[in-house]
Amino acid sequence: MRRELRAEWTKARTAPGTAWLLSAVVVLSAAASAAVAATVSCTAGGCDQDVPRLGLAGIQAGQAAVAVLAVFAVTGEYGTGMIATTFAAMPRRGRVLAAKAAVLTGLTLAAGTVAVLASVLAARLILPGNGFTAAGGHPPPSLADGPTLGAAAGTVLYLALIALFSLGAATAVRDSATAAGVVCGVLYVLPLIPRMVADPGWRRLLWQATPANAGLAVQTTTHLDDLPLGPWEGLGVAAAWAAAALLGAWLLVRTRDVRA
């Protein structure tokens, strides 16, 4: 396993897209969080905002870059046919997949931490100007606050789970554009499905089952009772999706012929 890890790390390190995409995770998250923070205001009339969640809203954008990073990690090899070289050099394909997952997780955790810190910082700088002040009873997000720290840490983990899910899906699909379509569908379109269902029971169940809805519940710090499931349980749902995708990918990659 050490050799697979080292090889995959060298690959990730020497692919020029990696640095770009990791920067994109940070920049997109921080920029989107800043944009959200700049456009909300806390007026005397109403200020029913979940402030930490506002500060982390940019992750919705940053997760796209995480997904692309994960998709490229696999489809870049299938698209060029280099996957044959990879599997000839490392015939234990399950280990290759595990090594890829490990490297990707590491990179995502690192970039995700920076992205979350940058987002919170942006929100801290911008929100007070829009009425979110400690004096007004709506302090800007601070990592010294327990629930906010939990939301921030959970968001980093969420990004890692999205990366793992994308990796599994891309390994199963093999084609770059199709994999991105599938992942975008799961991240952005699937969360809409619960809204299309009128029956409250089904609605709740579908909400609980969608990784982006349930996973991002980890950012919630207020109105927890309104959530169909707890923040960390939600992260568990995202983890289940990631595990299922990786398991499927592992089964396929073990038995399937390597075709570019």
Partner: peptide, 22 residues
């Protein structure tokens, strides 16, 4: 690069709409 293009376009068209409406 297929994945990048798909994500960029989805990020420009689909995601803002979803974020804005839901």
């Amino acid at each position: 690069r297929g994945a990048a293009a798909v994500t960029v376009v989805a990020g420009l068209v689909v995601v803002p709409h979803i974020l804005a409406t839901a």
